[in-house]
Design a protein around this nucleic acid. Structure first.
Lengths: 207, 207, 207, 207
DNA sequence: GATGAATGAGATTTCATTCAT
DNA sequence: AATGAATGAAATCTCATTCAT
């Protein structure tokens, strides 16, 4: 999966894509508020008019960008999960996909996880919904595992957010400090942690 | 502990405190960038001149606020830990203190955890150091537990961040959605999760 | 008379007419400056290219519209006058025609009387010429009446503008407030006023 | 009376007055839309910040200006009326005052009568209320005259607007063409017209 | 210490007009 | 004739910061 691919949007204007690509670069580098629309105009080799023809406001550019990134990430994670049969294998596939994708596209990951935080109502809401979709995915799989008797009864909602938070924090830390390098180094420990947290015997066959 | 208390700053100007209090409220409500200095001036019943007499810039107001909050939170957590002998008791005391403090001061918690993220260099650095101090505390205690043989060898750095992230996410979620209500409801589940994640037998004798 | 008819422009493009119709609606509703070309494009179900193919500029659309309206209004008023022999009957016919026409086409009346005022040189000049033609009509008829000895000598130029202004103000008031309802209600009073203002005995036999 | 005097506003900021004065000049010269805030900033020798400190928007500057002008004009007209006992003398005083004031301050008259027309909702409404106050003044005096038996019963509301319109049009014409020169030349004819329109015997002793 | 009017660089957004297709 | 994406000059407004009082 490519994470940035927009190949499927065959009908999308090339200019629109150029603008989004430039915006991704700019926002990731300077953060939302320090980025000015003129930067995007310049980097996209378009014009102010073109930008405002395709997007009603700077905010909407950012939000469109976040949506595009999140959609891709969520979709590929779901695909990876569905390719596996076993519950543990699903877990491993999801964790691996997410870390690999974020690791490969550090700039975009920054936009998704960091740039938009603390920006006020509309941004937070948007970002929240996205993380919620991830949390929902985790919760669904945990509920299945409980139904299958693999793990014992618990408040899966809390667990889902805790897991999300753990991943989020480690990735964020990596985004800022570059450690661990490479990001994927954290996966084995994290795997043990997360599985252990729901009482799963680890090491078992593991990977 | 009061978390907002500035009792020890016996020599500090009352105006300065009024400004910080107003700033806390404003930043928590609107986020850093959406808050304008005039809001703080207005809410603090002072004047623009007064604000700039006490603080060199808007940024410094925010940073001062964050420092004040974090210092108090960290100190009271450490105090709570030191009051306990047993490792498990220390853990419970820390978790309880943090959740209680954040729960009691929702607005301030919001500033500490979300308002400042993604704001660019100086902010992030500041905020990061704070979280790092917490992570350090966690790591130290985990290392002790390993040395004591209570838990097995692992990358305690990753674990510390994962724990931090889990707590962070759950509190953040509560800040936005109000759930769980009250926040402390999440503690038991979270306790099991965190302890379980490092392989500690739980439920057993509980506390 | 139809006031909006462009039947005589048998060779004119249907698109051009669609644009003018939409422009009339838009300008009347929002005024000149608040109307954007895109509004006209949208309402006329044409395209930006089409609009700029038929008109060199936004300004010219407005001017064309005003001209079309004024020509029709002036022509039908003159026709109504010519159908009458008696001076008093001519006056009544003119007053009736104008009020009836404006009353029937409120939106267009608004464009003619208010939308274009205070817009700067080219507009004002254009609009002025129109009102001048009306004033000229009034003046000519007054001069005739003086020559015929029906009314006494006076500065007919001032009178013409005063009459025009009286009508203009009452119609404008109606455009904004909807009163009097219907507009024609004002005619009898206005008739007495205008005739009385030049010393004509009124009430006499009415008409 | 000075029409522009702001002597009585002893508490008003000098900067605010400078801005309003500059705005008057600019708006009168170029019209509302062709005037840019930077013009006002420049001509007032202040700064953009100062302008927006005293007025929330360009629109409000204009509206404040119109109000200031209208207040002064209405007040001095009322004063002039109250100084007279006789009904006819009141009429003459009012007509004289208005024409003299407008004649003396052509630029401001332009703002009051022309610049704001056709600018859209908020402007029109404002301007309307102002003219309404004048119409009210006229109507009140006419009603008194009817009560006193000086003139016969009639729809004084229509008459008030017709009179207003007559004056408005003649002044507007003068503003654009400079004729009649001086403006006051029109007064005698207008006097005969207006009085005659309500059936008052004129010429009688004249004035 | 405190006040609040003043500053001005700079940001976002608008929209009449053009032009390749 | 018609389309609509693209252009870019220009406009309004924001707001952190300064400074005379």
């Amino acid at each position: 999966m490519t994470f940035t691919d927009s190949a499927s949007d065959s009908g999308k204007s090339a200019t629109r894509e150029r603008i989004l690509d430039a915006a991704a670069e700019v926002f990731a580098t300077k953060g939302y508020h320090s980025s000015v629309v003129d930067d995007i105009v310049h980097d996209s080799n378009t014009s102010k008019g073109a930008v405002y023809f395709h997007f009603p406001s700077k905010q909407e550019i950012f939000l469109a960008l976040v949506s595009r990134l999140a959609d891709t990430l969520i979709r590929s994670t779901q695909d990876a999960i569905m390719e596996q049969q076993d519950g543990l294998a699903k877990f491993d596939a999801a964790l691996g996909t997410v870390f690999e994708a974020l690791s490969r596209h550090r700039a975009l990951a920054k936009i998704l996880l960091v740039s938009g935080a603390g920006l006020g109502r509309p941004f937070d809401e948007h970002l929240f919904n996205l993380l919620d979709r991830f949390a929902g995915m985790i919760k669904d799989n945990l509920d299945e595992a409980i139904a299958a008797g693999s793990i014992q009864q618990m408040d899966t909602s809390i667990v889902a957010y805790a897991w999300l938070g753990a991943v989020h924090e480690i990735v964020t830390r990596w985004l800022y400090t570059g450690k661990p390098d490479p990001l994927e180094t954290a996966v084995p420990t994290l795997r043990i942690l997360l599985l252990g947290s729901v009482g799963l015997p680890i090491g078992t066959a593991g990977r």
